[in-house]
């Protein structure tokens, strides 16, 4: 199995619900807590497994805002696991999930240095590295109804922009979506073979912007249109 996520950049509205749901689930999960520092202070900070950035694509008037959620890519060739000196970081043979054994980590930060995606964050209180678990304590939980055995971020996404599944299965939803919509990997040139894919925004016609019409015929047409609409 090669479990991972698909993020649809066409429908993501940047609401941050995935990040909040992730924090809510995982702070009491196997790698919790996701420590917050000064949560009510001037500069609140803390551990997040999922962060959303907002980008502008292209130049005006052919520009577009894209919301960009990022979590661990569960790379096939995970550099964070390669560099880990203690054996705390490991990639599961059976499903490809990259995890940190909190009991073995010595907090040297080298895995965070090796990760190009910023997926790993040190918990300064506990002194260990923390990262997205793909909700490993959810997706295999047989006490949950079958359709809820998905990562918290996927469950909560109101825009249905996140999908979870097995990329090894060519007929899974994630494989099909990546294939049909041209799913892309981030920074593939580094060679870490990230699993998660990002579906590019669909090409939609530009929304026309208001132009001040001076043509008298167009003005009459506009006036008639408004009259009819009334």
């Amino acid at each position: 199995m090669k479990l991972g996520l698909v993020v649809d950049l066409d429908t993501c509205v940047g609401c941050n619900a995935c990040a909040v749901a992730c924090k809510q689930w995982n702070t009491s999960g196997t790698t919790g807590p996701l420590t917050d520092l000064e949560p009510y202070g001037k500069d609140p900070t803390g551990v997040w497994f999922n962060r959303i950035r907002n980008y502008e694509l292209g130049d005006y008037p052919d520009n577009k805002t894209v919301h960009f959620p990022m979590s661990c890519m569960h790379c096939e060739d995970a550099a964070c696991v390669t560099v880990c000196p203690t054996g705390a970081s490991y990639k599961r043979e059976e499903d490809g999930i990259v995890l940190v054994d909190q009991d073995k980590c010595m907090g040297c930060n080298l895995c965070a240095w090796a990760c190009p995606y910023g997926a790993r964050e040190l918990d300064p209180e506990e002194g260990v590295m923390k990262k997205c678990t793909l909700c490993v304590d959810r997706i295999y939980d047989e006490a949950l109804p079958e359709d809820e055995r998905q990562p918290a971020c996927v469950m909560t996404c109101p825009a249905h922009a996140r999908f979870f599944g097995d990329f090894d299965d060519p007929n899974s939803e994630v494989s099909r979506l990546s294939r049909e919509r041209g799913g892309e990997h981030l920074m593939p040139e580094l060679g870490y073979k990230p699993v998660n894919t990002y579906l590019p925004p669909r090409n939609k016609p530009n929304i026309p912007t208001y132009k001040n019409e001076t043509n008298p015929i167009e003005k009459v047409k506009d006036w008639v249109n408004r009259l009819v609409a009334r």
């Binding site: 696991v81 390669t82 560099v83 880990c84 000196p85 203690t86 054996g87 705390a88 009991d103 073995k104 980590c105 010595m106 907090g107 040297c108 930060n109 080298l110 040190l122 300064p124 506990e126 002194g127 260990v128």
Partner: peptide, 20 residues
Amino acid sequence: HLANPKNAWRAFSRVRTSWL
């Protein structure tokens, strides 16, 4: 610079891949 130095003794266990 280790955040959790009590596990520093484990740092010799992944010689096959880790330069550290």
